[in-house]
C-alpha cells in the first residue's frame, strides 16, 4: 500500500453538482486530504491535461469520473483516466447511465444542434453559424471537440470498476467509498456503492400489499396525502424500480422518485422494468380502460428514462460519430 493514495476527479458532460457533492462531505474532506493527494481536479484547482498525461500509468489509486461522455474530448479524457488509474469509479447518474444529458438521445445530435443554434427563441442567428471542428481565424486556427451521435455512459466507453449512483451521489456513500479504499476492503468489481433494495423499501409512506391504480394524476393537480404512497394516489413514482440508499430523499420531501440512483440489481433496462411495474398495478377490466388510465401518464419516456436513457436497451444507434470511431 502506498504512503498516500492518489485521487483524480474528472468532469465531462456534467453540471458540476457531482463535484459540489465532493465538497459537501465537509470535514471528511480533511480526512481525504490526509489519506490521499488530489493529483487532478480541474474544477477545483488549476490542472491541465498535461498534468494527468505526465503521471505514470496506473499510478492514481482511484479516478472518479463525473458526467456523461458526449464528445471526442470526453472519450479522450475517459481513456486517459483509465490508463492512469488503478480503479475507475463512475461518479453520479450521468457517468453511471448517461443521466439527464442522455434525455437528448431521443434526438440526433444534428436535431439538438438545430434547436440550439437555429430555432431556440433566445438565439438570433440569421446566417446559421454553427460551431466548427476547425476554424481559421485571421490570427490562427481554433479547434473544438466533435460531438458524438449521442450521450454515452462511462462503461460504454471504458472499463469501470465501481459506480457511485445518484444525481448527485450522497455524502454517506462517497464517505463509504473513501473508507473502503482506506481500509483496503474493496467490494467486488462492478459494485454499485449504495443500497441493494428499492427506494420503496426505504420509503416512510404507507403502502398496501397490493398497489392498485385506477387513475394517474399530475402532482400539482392533487392534494396528496403525505402519509400515503404516491403511486397509490396515482402520482407517477419510480421508487419500485430504483435502487435504495438515498433514504427516499425526494419522496420524504413531498416529491416522487425519478430514479436517479438507477435500477436495482439484475435489471437490464430500467424503463422496461418501470413499464412493467406500472402495468402490474394498473387496474382495468378492458383495453380501453387501460388505455384511458395510462393515457394520463403524460410523459412515460421522461419518467421511465429520466436519468438512464444511455443504458437503455432501446439504445438507438444513430450511425453518426461513436466513441470507438475516435
Amino acid at each position: 500500500m502506498p504512503d498516500k493514495f492518489k485521487f483524480a476527479f474528472m468532469p465531462s458532460a456534467s453540471c458540476g453538482g457531482c463535484e459540489i457533492a465532493i465538497v459537501d462531505i465537509d470535514e471528511v474532506i480533511l480526512k481525504v486530504a490526509e489519506l490521499a493527494d488530489i493529483v487532478y481536479w480541474p474544477t477545483a484547482l488549476d490542472f491541465k491535461d498535461h498534468h494527468l498525461e505526465a503521471l505514470p500509468d496506473g499510478s492514481i489509486t482511484v479516478g472518479f469520473f463525473n458526467g456523461a461522455v458526449r464528445n471526442d474530448h470526453d472519450v479522450h479524457h475517459a481513456k486517459l483516466l483509465r490508463q492512469k488509474s488503478a480503479f475507475v469509479v463512475a461518479f453520479g447518474a450521468c457517468a453511471q447511465m448517461g443521466g439527464i444529458p442522455s434525455l437528448g438521445n431521443f434526438w440526433t445530435t444534428e436535431e439538438l444542434a438545430h434547436r440550439m443554434y437555429d430555432t431556440v427563441p433566445s438565439v438570433n442567428n440569421p446566417e446559421g453559424t454553427r460551431p466548427q471542428l476547425k476554424y481559421d481565424a485571421p490570427e490562427g486556427e481554433l479547434t473544438l471537440p466533435r460531438a458524438m451521435d449521442r450521450a454515452y455512459a462511462l462503461d460504454q466507453v471504458i472499463d469501470v470498476d465501481y459506480y457511485l449512483p445518484g444525481c448527485p451521489p450522497q455524502v454517506k456513500w462517497i464517505v463509504a467509498a473513501v473508507e473502503a479504499v482506506a481500509s483496503g476492503e474493496l467490494p467486488p468489481k462492478g459494485t454499485v456503492i449504495a443500497g441493494t433494495k428499492a427506494v420503496c423499501d426505504e420509503c416512510p409512506r404507507e403502502r398496501s400489499e397490493e398497489k392498485q391504480v385506477t387513475e394517474f394524476k399530475r402532482i400539482h393537480l392533487v392534494e396528496n396525502d403525505p402519509e400515503k404512497c404516491l403511486l397509490e394516489q396515482g402520482i407517477m413514482c419510480c421508487g419500485p424500480a430504483t435502487r435504495d440508499g438515498c433514504e427516499a430523499a425526494c419522496v420524504t420531501a413531498g416529491q416522487a422518485c425519478r430514479g436517479c440512483f438507477g435500477p436495482t440489481d439484475n435489471v437490464n433496462d430500467m424503463g422496461a422494468k418501470l413499464a412493467s411495474a406500472i402495468a402490474s398495478i394498473t387496474v382495468a377490466d378492458a383495453q380501453e380502460e387501460a388505455d384511458r388510465i395510462l393515457g394520463h401518464l403524460d410523459d412515460p419516456a421522461g419518467y421511465f428514462y429520466r436519468f438512464g436513457l444511455a443504458k437503455s436497451m432501446l439504445g438507438v444507434q444513430r450511425g453518426e460519430f461513436k466513441p470507438e470511431a475516435e
Binding site: 431556440v120 416529491q255 410523459d299
Partner: peptide, 21 residues
C-alpha cells in the same frame, strides 16, 4: 466546447418536471 441539448430535450416534458431537469 460543450453540447448537451437541454434546449431540445426539455420540450414536451410536463412543466412541473422542469424544476427537476
Amino acid at each position: 466546447p460543450e453540447l448537451r441539448g437541454f434546449e431540445q430535450f426539455c420540450v414536451g416534458r410536463p412543466v412541473e418536471e422542469l424544476p427537476r431537469i
